[in-house]
């Protein structure tokens, strides 16, 4: 394949990933690595490098808007970034010694978990205002905009959320993903932040988490410019268009479609991992 053909095909695929990722709220990063490795036979390390770069681009682009709207809890974000950046550096160190087949199996499991979470019923839990020891000490409680004006909320179970964020950081570095699903799980389910605050704060943190390992991978030679530029520009353009189309698109149908794609990729990654074909 020539450089031009590869760039056009990869840019097209990445555009689709960014578009569907933004429309479904699952992020495009989760399918970039399977697409590059399964469809274009790219080595896992080059794929992870290119994917991480696209993850930084989309999360920072979206975070710019969310931060201004006042949903993002900056203190919660910064605090949990301690855990995700340590996790990311640990993950980057581990990635040199974990065999590719094991990474493929792990990737398959994370994809399956993503699919499971995306079809599960999302119940908006009640916003709590009971004070928590850690949250009070670190002044994490805040307010967020709702239809009824600014509403106060309190943050719960900080140590548990912090621990899960460490895992999110490791997975982000090992697999070249944003780990948004796990970050939202920690903040929404464990720490009991309002859902919209969880998703925007997760997005706010993804760029920093990915930057921690991307810096290491740049020095290690995982980030190839010829492969990364169509991935980054494609995913970013797709995500920007997706954000525009969000109000008119049938997201339920798209979510089912995207979940189907994720499941197929999960099975393929598991198969390749177990047969050593990656």
């Amino acid at each position: 394949m020539t450089t031009l053909t590869l760039a056009l095909l990869v840019a097209g695929g990445s555009f689709g990933a960014g578009l569907l990722g933004a429309l479904t709220g699952l992020g495009g990063g989760i399918v970039v690595v399977p697409m590059l490795t399964l469809l274009f036979h790219v080595d896992l390390r080059y794929a992870i490098g290119a994917s991480l770069v696209s993850v930084i681009a989309t999360s920072s682009g979206a975070a710019a808007a969310f931060v201004r709207e006042g949903f993002t809890n900056v203190r919660v974000g910064i605090l949990l970034e301690v855990a995700t950046t340590v996790g990311a550096l640990v993950g980057a160190a581990l990635s040199g010694v974990i065999p590719t087949s094991a990474l493929a199996v792990l990737f398959g499991c994370v994809l399956l978990f993503t699919a499971y979470r995306s079809i599960g019923r999302r119940e908006e839990h009640a916003v709590l205002t009971t004070p928590d020891r850690w949250s009070a000490r670190l002044r994490l409680d805040s307010t967020y905009p709702t239809a009824q004006g600014m509403l106060a909320y309190s943050v719960q179970r900080v140590p548990a959320g912090f621990s899960l964020m460490f895992v999110a950081g490791i997975l982000s570095a090992l697999l070249g993903i944003g780990s948004g699903i796990i970050k939202v799980l920690a903040m929404d389910q464990m720490m009991r932040l309002p859902f919209k605050v969880s998703t925007t704060t997760s997005n706010f943190m993804i760029g920093v988490t990915a930057a921690a390992s991307a810096g290491v991978y740049l020095h290690r030679g995982y980030i190839d410019p010829t492969l990364s530029f169509p991935v980054m520009l494609g995913v970013l353009a797709g995500a920007l268009l997706g954000a525009r189309l969000l109000s008119v698109a049938n997201t339920t149908l798209l979510r089912q479609l995207f979940t189907g794609v994720v499941v197929v990729m999960a099975l393929e990654m598991l198969y390749k991992g177990f047969t050593g074909g990656l």
């Binding site: 394949m1 020539t2 450089t3 031009l4 590869l6 760039a7 590059l36 274009f40 036979h41 790219v42 080595d43 390390r45 080059y46 794929a47 740049l218 020095h219 290690r220 030679g221 995982y222 980030i223 190839d224 410019p225 010829t226 492969l227 530029f229 169509p230 520009l233």
Partner: peptide, 26 residues
């Protein structure tokens, strides 16, 4: 990216084997 495609667009490329980037790009 545009510069790259103009100069090296027709060159064959494969990423199936990991070589690591040269020091120049690291």
């Amino acid at each position: 990216g545009v510069l790259l495609l103009v100069r090296h667009g027709s060159a064959p490329v494969s990423y199936s084997v990991f070589h690591g980037e040269p020091e120049l790009l690291r």
